[in-house]
């Protein structure tokens, strides 16, 4: 059996007496884009903190391409690319300087790094702007640079934490299309936290999280069938009791 790119099993986590995640299990395979839906406070940020090993869970396990995040964290994290909710680029440095920094952290040499930077930026039509300071870029372009950065070391799993928040429609669409393209063409596995249901593609999977519990999971069509809902918005409203955008 091929190992899932991300496998979360019986994961529980609490901040003191407050339970943030309760027995969460799901997996994301190569070539799969899983959309993580949940209202504020559902446990999405906690889940991302645990996958990126900001802190460790005491119960349950997280495996990236078969490597346990806690026990084999280096092998696991080497296969992970992340775009955090807040921008994490250095505004005073140029696009290339930011990307070279990331490449260095992953042990990629200068020559190989420059080659990868070119490939990823060209794919996002950003190569001509590589010398510009990040401060000069608009929100959509910054996000593109962050996605390019997350892919520099050829990860197997890409984590996206609400990457399109605050962007205009064309920028959002460009990012949604680019990520789905990566999933289709390169077999990348993606876990995408969002509030924006129009970002869900027909082939995507859903993981609906509410109050730390997985309420539904599987291919969109399967979830619609199981819940008897007509679309993802209805699924979300019914399972979480919340409205959507």
């Amino acid at each position: 059996m091929i190992e899932a790119a991300l496998s979360v099993e019986n994961l529980s986590f609490a901040y003191g007496p407050k339970k943030a995640l309760d027995n969460v299990s799901f997996s994301v395979r190569a070539g799969e884009c899983a959309i993580l839906l949940g209202p504020n406070g559902a446990g999405k940020s906690t889940l991302f903190s645990l996958i990126t090993r900001l802190y460790d869970a005491r119960q349950g396990s997280i495996r990236l391409c078969g490597f346990d995040v806690k026990k084999n964290s280096r092998q696991a994290l080497a296969r992970l690319g992340v775009v955090f909710q807040q921008t994490t680029l250095d505004a005073d440095l140029s696009v290339t300087q930011n990307l070279r920094y990331h490449a260095a952290l992953h042990g990629i040499g200068r020559k190989a790094a420059d080659k990868r930077i070119r490939e990823e930026l060209e794919r996002l039509n950003m190569y001509d702007r590589r010398q510009e300071k990040v401060r000069q870029l608009n929100g959509g372009h910054r996000r593109r640079v962050e996605i390019a950065r997350a892919l520099l070391h050829n990860p197997s799993l890409l984590l996206l934490d609400e990457p399109t928040v605050g962007l205009d429609m064309p920028s959002r669409q460009a990012i949604v299309e680019h990520v789905h393209d990566l999933v289709r063409r390169q077999g990348l596995a993606v876990l995408w936290a969002t509030h924006l249901l129009d970002e869900i593609g027909a082939q995507d999977s859903l993981v609906v999280l509410d109050k730390g519990v997985v309420k539904a999971g599987g291919r969109l069509a399967e979830v619609l069938h199981a819940t008897g809902c007509g679309n993802a918005a209805e699924v979300f409203a019914r399972l979480t009791g919340g409205g959507v955008e």
Binding site: T52, R74, Q75, L80, T87, T88, L89, L105, H106
Partner: peptide, 15 residues
């Protein structure tokens, strides 16, 4: 850390 770039550093595969 609030802005996330510390998290960026912590995610890289080194001790």
């Amino acid at each position: 850390r609030e802005m996330g770039s510390m998290r960026m550093l912590m995610v890289c595969p080194l001790p």
